[in-house]
Write a protein that binds this DNA or RNA. Structure first.
Length: 456
RNA sequence: GCCCCCAUCGUCUAGCGGCCUAGGACGCCAGCCUUUCAAGCUGGUAGCACGGGUUCGAAUCCCGUUGGGGGCGCCA
């Protein structure tokens, strides 16, 4: 049977590289096995929903991740937005209660749950897993909880292997809140069954909930039970779970603002947890032999430097000329398309993002003025360069080459002078002949301080 | 505090009892090349957390310690 996998983000913030890391693996896992991929929005906590379905869809799309069913494209198990499936969840909850697999807990709610969560150490004042109070208490609206059978739960995880937990250590997770709405735990399990999900790939921050979810799935009669793969958490520089608040790691920031090529980001993220390949791989190539069971179990760190080496190579070797040109034009609209295309070979090997590429064209936008220090360049040499025929990359390269001295020191000094005069203030630029080519004969003449025949 | 997970160069990783004097990639350093800056090429730097076992033999297996991460009453 072909697997059906899903990615079920909660719209609690912009997608970060950590989300992309998870989504990509979930996608690669089903695609490598010829299965179907479902996008489902897990908006079970209305108070924390801050981003739209559209924003999730566009972030995922920008990364080249596609889905067969989802909130935007529909499908046989619609709707794919959890909050719109409430009736099903409540119905499932009732059946669990009826079969005795769940019960009402009358423990009053914690005054300050968020403060409680932050409490560490002995101050926590509790040991062992949560157990509720089934005796009705007047004035308390109960919450429906999973009843934990008195048996050790053992589940196979495709990445982490056998996961087992004693019954005493498994908390009685909430299924319905006191206001009657379903929690993520219930909703997620019900939806996975309803949508015929056979493969769940998610972050290891869910690993502790696995026994509980397994119990819920069993109690709900899931057949077959889905297989699980938990991913070691992608962590930040500090070694801790990446927070959605870290704006710099938001996909849209990286892609839209910094100009990181999304497919290169995919190649980098997909590589984490696996040995590095000699070639930069596309999504299809990555999917061809993806094996989640071979995934490393320790948490990889997001390393911007390593990312840049992927994006740099991507732009130098794999980016198609037309799309590269389009990206640069978006970021440097004042530069003509022909010019962008003409200088691209000189730009390609020097940049790690589309933005860096666009920035390499900025020298064209400065105003032309003579009077720079062009001391090492004699009037005669400058005039000879300006007189180059035809004004082509190859011809200009040859002209510059024959004009500069052979002595290493002098050559260095003269090249630097050319660069300073043609692209004042720019540290990294395309090669000199590309600067000349981009500026054109007349503007180059002015920048090099060569007087015209008439003026002289 | 309790539970779960993890542990090889700074980072990503190879290694599944002898092939390891621990290999590769990124970073960093140096040299070469070169039409500046980049890129490229060559070389270098740096690691099996610690302690016990098991074994003829351990980075590899077991136990412990330490360290790190994650989770723990109606967030996801």
């Amino acid at each position: 049977m072909e697997p059906r996998g899903r990615y079920a983000p909660s719209p609690t913030g912009n997608m970060t590289v950590a989300n992309a890391y998870t989504a990509l693996r979930a996608w690669l896992d089903v695609k490598s096995r010829g299965g179907e991929f479902v996008l489902r929005i897990d908006d079970t906590d209305p108070e924390r929903n801050v981003v739209t379905v559209d924003s999730i869809v566009s972030d995922l799309t920008s990364l080249g991740i596609t889905w067969d069913e989802g909130p935007d494209v529909g499908g046989p198990y619609a709707p794919y937005v959890v909050s719109r499936r409430l009736e099903r969840h409540v119905e499932a909850a009732r059946s669990l209660e009826a079969s005795g697999r769940a019960y009402w807990d009358y423990t009053p709610p914690l005054e300050d749950a968020s403060a409680h969560k932050k409490t560490k150490g002995a101050d926590r004042g509790r040991t062992g897993a949560y157990r509720g109070n089934p005796e009705p208490v007047s004035g308390v609206e109960p919450v429906l909880r999973l009843r934990v059978p008195d048996a050790r739960v053992e589940v196979h995880d495709r990445v982490f292997g056998e996961i087992s937990q004693a019954a005493d250590d498994i908390g009685e997770v909430a299924l319905l809140r006191s206001d009657g709405t379903p929690t993520y735990h219930l909703a997620s399990c019900v939806d996975d069954i309803d949508m015929r999900i056979t493969s769940v790939v998610r972050g290891a921050d869910w690993l502790n909930s696995l026994p509980q979810h397994w119990l819920i799935l069993e109690a709900l009669g899931a057949d077959p039970m889905p297989e699980f793969a938990h991913l070691p958490l992608l962590v930040g520089k500090d070694g801790q779970k990446l927070s959605k608040r870290e704006g710099g790691l938001a996909i849209r920031h990286l892609v839209a603002e910094e100009g990181v090529p999304p497919l290169a980001l995919d190649a980098y993220l997909a590589n984490l947890g696996f040995p590095e390949r000699p070639d930069l791989l596309s999504l299809t190539e990555l999917a061809s032999d993806f094996d989640i069971a071979a995934h490393n179990r320790n948490s990889p760190r997001f390393d911007p430097k390593k990312l840049r080496s992927f994006t740099r190579r991507w732009l130098a070797e794999k980016e198609a000329e037309d799309s590269f040109v389009a990206e640069i034009r978006d970021r440097a609209p004042a530069v003509g398309e022909d010019t962008v295309r003409l200088l691209l070979p000189g730009v390609r090997p020097r940049v790690g993002t589309y933005q860096e590429a666009a920035d390499l064209y900025a020298f064209l936008l400065a105003s032309d003025e003579a009077g720079r220090d062009v001391t090492p360049i004699s009037d005669e040499v400058a005039a000879r360069i300006i007189g180059t025929e035809p004004w082509s990359a190859a011809q200009l390269e040859a002209a510059v080459d024959s004009a500069v001295p052979t002595d290493a020191e002098q050559r260095k000094a003269m090249m630097k002078a050319f660069r300073d005069a043609l692209a004042p203030g720019f540290r990294v630029t395309p090669p000199i002949h590309y600067l000349l080519l981009g500026l054109g004969r007349e503007r180059s003449r002015i920048r090099l301080g060569v007087r015209t025949e008439a003026a002289g």
